[in-house]
Protein backbone atom coordinates (compact mmCIF):
# COMPACT_ATOMS: atom_id res chain seq x y z
CA UNK A 1 0.00 0.00 0.00
CA UNK A 2 1.29 3.44 -0.90
CA UNK A 3 -1.05 6.42 -1.07
CA UNK A 4 -0.36 10.04 -1.74
CA UNK A 5 -2.37 13.16 -0.93
CA UNK A 6 -1.87 16.69 -2.15
CA UNK A 7 -3.18 19.39 0.16
CA UNK A 8 -3.46 22.73 -1.60
CA UNK A 9 -4.91 26.14 -0.84
CA UNK A 10 -4.14 29.70 0.20
CA UNK A 11 -1.37 30.39 2.68
CA UNK A 12 -3.05 30.74 6.06
CA UNK A 13 -5.65 28.02 5.46
CA UNK A 14 -3.68 25.56 7.56
CA UNK A 15 -2.77 23.35 4.63
CA UNK A 16 0.71 22.43 5.81
CA UNK A 17 -0.55 21.60 9.31
CA UNK A 18 -3.33 19.39 7.98
CA UNK A 19 -0.78 17.45 5.96
CA UNK A 20 1.56 17.19 8.91
CA UNK A 21 -1.17 15.78 11.14
CA UNK A 22 -1.96 13.12 8.55
CA UNK A 23 1.74 12.24 8.31
CA UNK A 24 2.05 12.06 12.10
CA UNK A 25 -1.01 9.80 12.30
CA UNK A 26 0.54 7.47 9.76
CA UNK A 27 3.85 7.40 11.62
CA UNK A 28 2.12 6.71 14.94
CA UNK A 29 0.39 3.71 13.36
CA UNK A 30 3.73 2.28 12.24
CA UNK A 31 3.52 3.36 8.62
CA UNK A 32 6.16 5.07 6.51
CA UNK A 33 5.35 8.68 5.68
CA UNK A 34 6.80 11.66 3.85
CA UNK A 35 5.62 15.26 4.09
CA UNK A 36 6.91 17.51 1.35
CA UNK A 37 5.93 21.19 1.41
CA UNK A 38 6.10 23.73 -1.33
CA UNK A 39 8.37 26.28 0.23
CA UNK A 40 9.60 29.77 -0.31
CA UNK A 41 8.07 33.18 -0.82
CA UNK A 42 4.81 31.69 -2.02
CA UNK A 43 4.23 30.46 1.52
CA UNK A 44 3.74 34.04 2.58
CA UNK A 45 0.36 35.09 1.38
CA UNK A 46 0.19 33.14 -1.85
CA UNK A 47 -0.74 29.54 -2.50
CA UNK A 48 0.63 26.68 -0.45
CA UNK A 49 0.66 22.96 -0.97
CA UNK A 50 2.17 19.85 0.49
CA UNK A 51 2.35 16.25 -0.59
CA UNK A 52 1.93 13.50 1.99
CA UNK A 53 2.75 9.90 1.17
CA UNK A 54 1.62 7.11 3.48
CA UNK A 55 2.88 3.61 2.83
CA UNK A 56 3.49 0.26 4.48
CA UNK A 57 6.98 -0.06 2.95
CA UNK A 58 9.86 2.42 2.52
CA UNK A 59 8.89 5.37 0.35
CA UNK A 60 10.91 6.18 -2.72
CA UNK A 61 9.83 9.41 -4.28
CA UNK A 62 8.11 12.03 -2.11
CA UNK A 63 7.32 13.76 -5.40
CA UNK A 64 4.15 12.25 -6.78
CA UNK A 65 2.77 12.32 -10.32
CA UNK A 66 -0.71 10.99 -9.60
CA UNK A 67 -1.87 11.23 -5.99
CA UNK A 68 -4.74 9.06 -4.75
CA UNK A 69 -6.30 12.11 -3.15
CA UNK A 70 -6.46 15.87 -3.44
CA UNK A 71 -7.68 18.39 -0.89
CA UNK A 72 -8.44 21.59 -2.81
CA UNK A 73 -9.15 24.44 -0.44
CA UNK A 74 -9.59 27.06 -3.17
CA UNK A 75 -10.39 27.28 -6.86
CA UNK A 76 -6.81 27.71 -8.17
CA UNK A 77 -5.82 24.53 -6.34
CA UNK A 78 -8.58 22.53 -7.96
CA UNK A 79 -7.68 23.95 -11.37
CA UNK A 80 -4.04 23.11 -10.89
CA UNK A 81 -4.22 19.60 -9.46
CA UNK A 82 -7.53 18.08 -10.61
CA UNK A 83 -6.03 16.57 -13.73
CA UNK A 84 -3.27 14.83 -11.79
CA UNK A 85 -5.40 12.77 -9.40
CA UNK A 86 -5.19 9.03 -10.08
CA UNK A 87 -8.25 7.39 -11.60
CA UNK A 88 -10.46 6.09 -8.83
CA UNK A 89 -9.03 8.67 -6.45
CA UNK A 90 -10.84 11.17 -4.30
CA UNK A 91 -11.02 14.96 -4.44
CA UNK A 92 -12.13 16.86 -1.34
CA UNK A 93 -13.23 20.31 -2.43
CA UNK A 94 -13.82 23.24 -0.13
CA UNK A 95 -17.23 24.10 -1.59
CA UNK A 96 -17.43 27.28 0.51
CA UNK A 97 -14.89 28.85 -1.83
CA UNK A 98 -14.89 26.67 -4.92
CA UNK A 99 -18.02 27.36 -6.91
CA UNK A 100 -17.46 24.86 -9.66
CA UNK A 101 -17.99 21.12 -9.64
CA UNK A 102 -15.20 18.57 -10.14
CA UNK A 103 -14.99 17.89 -13.89
CA UNK A 104 -13.46 14.44 -13.71
CA UNK A 105 -15.85 11.49 -13.77
CA UNK A 106 -13.29 8.82 -12.88
CA UNK A 107 -12.72 10.19 -9.38
CA UNK A 108 -14.99 10.53 -6.36
CA UNK A 109 -15.77 14.16 -5.56
CA UNK A 110 -16.42 15.19 -1.97
CA UNK A 111 -17.64 18.78 -1.74
CA UNK A 112 -17.37 20.03 1.85
CA UNK A 113 -18.26 23.62 2.82
CA UNK A 114 -15.25 23.85 5.13
CA UNK A 115 -15.43 27.60 5.79
CA UNK A 116 -19.12 27.48 6.63
CA UNK A 117 -18.79 24.46 8.90
CA UNK A 118 -15.82 26.02 10.67
CA UNK A 119 -17.76 29.24 11.22
CA UNK A 120 -20.69 27.23 12.48
CA UNK A 121 -18.35 25.45 14.93
CA UNK A 122 -17.33 28.83 16.24
CA UNK A 123 -13.81 29.31 14.80
CA UNK A 124 -13.18 29.93 11.09
CA UNK A 125 -9.62 28.68 11.46
CA UNK A 126 -10.58 25.03 11.90
CA UNK A 127 -11.54 24.75 8.24
CA UNK A 128 -8.39 22.71 7.66
CA UNK A 129 -9.53 20.09 10.17
CA UNK A 130 -12.95 19.89 8.55
CA UNK A 131 -11.25 19.17 5.23
CA UNK A 132 -8.80 16.72 6.82
CA UNK A 133 -11.68 14.82 8.43
CA UNK A 134 -13.32 14.46 5.04
CA UNK A 135 -10.02 13.37 3.48
CA UNK A 136 -9.49 10.69 6.14
CA UNK A 137 -12.84 9.20 5.21
CA UNK A 138 -12.06 9.43 1.51
CA UNK A 139 -8.53 8.01 1.73
CA UNK A 140 -9.62 5.15 3.98
CA UNK A 141 -6.12 4.25 5.13
CA UNK A 142 -6.12 5.45 8.72
CA UNK A 143 -8.89 5.45 11.32
CA UNK A 144 -10.18 8.83 12.37
CA UNK A 145 -8.99 8.19 15.95
CA UNK A 146 -5.39 8.01 14.74
CA UNK A 147 -5.77 11.41 13.14
CA UNK A 148 -7.46 12.82 16.24
CA UNK A 149 -4.55 11.58 18.37
CA UNK A 150 -2.03 13.10 15.98
CA UNK A 151 -3.92 16.40 16.07
CA UNK A 152 -3.81 16.38 19.87
CA UNK A 153 -0.05 15.74 19.86
CA UNK A 154 0.40 18.57 17.40
CA UNK A 155 -1.55 21.12 19.46
CA UNK A 156 -0.82 20.02 23.03
CA UNK A 157 1.51 22.09 25.13
CA UNK A 158 1.90 24.82 22.55
CA UNK A 159 -0.66 27.17 24.03
CA UNK A 160 -3.32 25.58 21.87
CA UNK A 161 -4.62 22.95 24.31
CA UNK A 162 -7.96 24.62 24.57
CA UNK A 163 -8.42 24.29 20.82
CA UNK A 164 -8.11 20.50 20.84
CA UNK A 165 -11.78 19.75 21.44
CA UNK A 166 -12.86 22.23 18.80
CA UNK A 167 -10.47 20.67 16.30
CA UNK A 168 -11.73 17.21 17.22
CA UNK A 169 -15.29 18.31 16.48
CA UNK A 170 -14.12 19.77 13.17
CA UNK A 171 -12.39 16.53 12.17
CA UNK A 172 -15.51 14.53 13.04
CA UNK A 173 -17.80 16.91 11.17
CA UNK A 174 -15.65 16.68 8.07
CA UNK A 175 -15.53 12.90 8.34
CA UNK A 176 -19.33 12.58 8.57
CA UNK A 177 -19.81 15.16 5.81
CA UNK A 178 -17.77 12.94 3.47
CA UNK A 179 -19.82 9.95 4.56
CA UNK A 180 -22.73 11.47 2.61
CA UNK A 181 -20.82 11.07 -0.64
CA UNK A 182 -18.86 7.92 0.00
CA UNK A 183 -21.09 5.64 2.00
Amino acid sequence: MEKAVIFAGFGGQGILLAGKILARAGMNRGLEVTWLPSYGPEMRGGTANCTVVVADSPIGSPVVDNPEALVAMNAPSLDRFEGRVAAGGVIVVNSSLVKRAVKRHDVRAVPVPANDIAAELGNPRVLNMVALGALVRGLDVLPLEAVEEAMEEELRGRGRDKLIELNRRALRRGFSEAEKYLA
Binding site: M27, E32, V33, T34, W35, L36, P37, Y39, I59, P62
Partner: peptide, 10 residues
Protein backbone atom coordinates in the same frame (compact mmCIF):
# COMPACT_ATOMS: atom_id res chain seq x y z
CA UNK B 1 19.30 19.88 -1.12
CA UNK B 2 16.38 22.04 -0.19
CA UNK B 3 13.95 19.15 -0.55
CA UNK B 4 15.66 17.02 2.07
CA UNK B 5 16.00 20.09 4.29
CA UNK B 6 12.34 20.99 4.05
CA UNK B 7 10.58 17.64 4.01
CA UNK B 8 9.50 15.67 7.06
CA UNK B 9 9.91 11.97 7.70
CA UNK B 10 9.97 9.75 10.76
Amino acid sequence: DGMIGQMMEP
